[in-house]
Amino acid sequence: MKELSLNILDIVQNSLTAGASHIEIDLAETDETLRITVTDDGCGMDENTVRNVTDPFYTTRKTRSVGLGIPFFKLAAEQTGGGLTLKSVPASESDGHGTVISALFYKTSIDFTPLGDVASTLCTLVQGLPDGTEITFTHSLPGGTVSLDTAEMRAVLCGVPLSTPEVIVFIKDDLASQYAEARAMK
């Protein structure tokens, strides 16, 4: 993956597959570090699956016997001196089921993959977001915070789909202006 924002897009697909109704994407950035956390209330995974998902030769899909999403994300974090943690509660065990995946990156490392175009990742996610699933996104930077909340947007849109091209363009422009403000304050 050329950008961490692509890893985020890939990891969030797992939450969608898990049937999550709420997905939280949280980016916490300082001058030296970046922490990316994705929290969902999807079906979760049992202990055995959690142990296996970082193995590139483990996958649930049927088309191929490799699964590189989480291994790529883990590698990207570890090569900067950071790491990945994964916690999951399966639906069979508790009503409070879901998964939290969190990765820490050291931005000062020469092997740090740039975060890249997060706005584009969010537009892609919103474009394909099923009804009944909401995303909240927060990116805290040293100069300010950038955020997006699809539930809030749906409430304003009253039935006009989030995937409407005009809405996607609006999100793109809105995030661009939020980022410009947060970065200017630094």
Partner: peptide, 14 residues
């Protein structure tokens, strides 16, 4: 989100 008014305008148009 910054401008929810802008979003409301899109709703009216769409």
């Amino acid at each position: 989100m910054k401008s929810l008014e802008e979003l409301a305008k899109i709703r009216e148009r769409m």
